[in-house]
């Protein structure tokens, strides 16, 4: 918010940001005002699309709200119930399990692919395109494509297992395999994008650093450890952030791949794939417990907040700026 006084004051004084002369200074409409104009869309976004739903959910979370009749105040009951709800804790564990499988696998695989692609190869743009086909597909498409692979009855995965002399698996229908299978499909869909990010990071590392390391007698592995990894720490950070987001938002995927599309309630088998967002969705949309679901949403907000803070911290510590 810029008051008139601010503007007047700014108009009078040339501001000296970063010790440089700021562009486009005009009397009466200073840099701050311009900046506010530029940032306005996002300020509106924060009020309308973030603050409003978050506050509305805060209110719902303190009520018994079935979405059909008006909310009834119950204080902290929903939170009390939540902390004793086994299914909720299991959904958090499932989310963490998914993250543990998904985030490192995708990151490492993407890095390996990027290193392999970071050389002059024939057909390189075709190869790279292949990795992008899943990236540009929506989850609805991926749901059906994944079924062609992991359907225990007529999917390809079991045929391949058969060639290897292994017994068939039930994949998404197995309480043990369902989350690894979901993570695998998520990697399959996302790795292409992360690969390109790494590729970009790799190409930003100055060649001289490698030369210097070679002269010092560093082995290929040492060069990778001491030059490549620090050189792409910014990219790695970005990839980790984006992968974490995918994990937290793994709703559409779980819904499409385990849910009604397969003729059963989502989160099958028996809740083995129920992640926190899905748990919330089920409580709110299928069981009419919107108050309770809002409490779950608030726990999610808290988690997101903590993760954001941790990531910002890590970024400061971790990322070497080239």
């Amino acid at each position: 918010m810029t008051t008139i006084e601010d503007r007047v004051e700014q108009g009078r004084r040339p501001s000296l940001g970063d010790g440089r002369r700021d562009g486009g200074e005009r009397p009466g409409f200073g840099q701050r005002a311009w900046a506010t104009v530029f940032a306005f869309p996002y300020l509106a976004h924060l009020v309308v699309l973030t603050a409003w739903p978050v506050l509305a959910l805060a209110y719902f979370s303190l009520t018994d709200y079935d979405t059909l009749s008006s909310p009834r105040w119950v204080g902290l009951d929903n939170f009390r119930r939540l902390f004793g709800d086994e299914a909720f804790w299991r959904s958090l564990l499932n989310t963490a399990y998914f993250a543990v499988l998904f985030v490192p696998t995708q990151t490492i695989l993407a890095l390996l692919l990027a290193v392999a692609l970071n050389q002059r190869l024939r057909w390189i743009s075709w190869l790279r395109s292949a990795y992008f086909v899943p990236v540009v597909s929506s989850w609805v498409v991926v749901g059906y494509v994944a079924d062609a692979v992991f359907n225990p009855q007529f999917g390809m995965a079991n045929t391949v297992l058969g060639w290897l002399g292994l017994p068939p698996a039930t994949w998404l229908q197995s309480p043990v395999l369902v989350i690894p299978t979901l993570a695998l499909v998520a990697v399959w869909k996302g790795v292409g994008y992360m690969m390109v990010l790494f590729l970009a990071g790799l190409q930003n590392i100055p060649e001289e650093l490698y030369e210097a390391a070679k002269i010092d007698g560093a082995s290929a592995w040492q060069r990778f450890r001491r030059v490549t990894l620090p050189g792409i720490s910014g990219t790695t950070f970005l990839v980790l952030v984006l992968s974490t987001i995918t994990t937290l938002q793994a709703f559409e995927q779980v819904y499409v791949m385990t849910g009604p599309m397969r003729g059963q309630p989502a989160g099958q088998p028996n809740g083995a794939s129920e992640m926190t967002v899905l748990f919330m969705y089920q409580q709110g949309f299928e069981f009419f417990n919107m108050g309770y679901a809002s409490a779950v949403a608030w726990v999610l907000f808290a988690l997101i907040f903590i993760l954001t803070m941790v990531q910002l911290r890590l970024q400061k510590k971790w990322v070497h700026y080239a």
């Binding site: 225990p152 009855q153 039930t170 003729g263 088998p269």
Partner: peptide, 12 residues
Amino acid sequence: VVTTKALGSPHT
């Protein structure tokens, strides 16, 4: 139960 689920949806 496991085999039944593996055999597909109730339609198939």
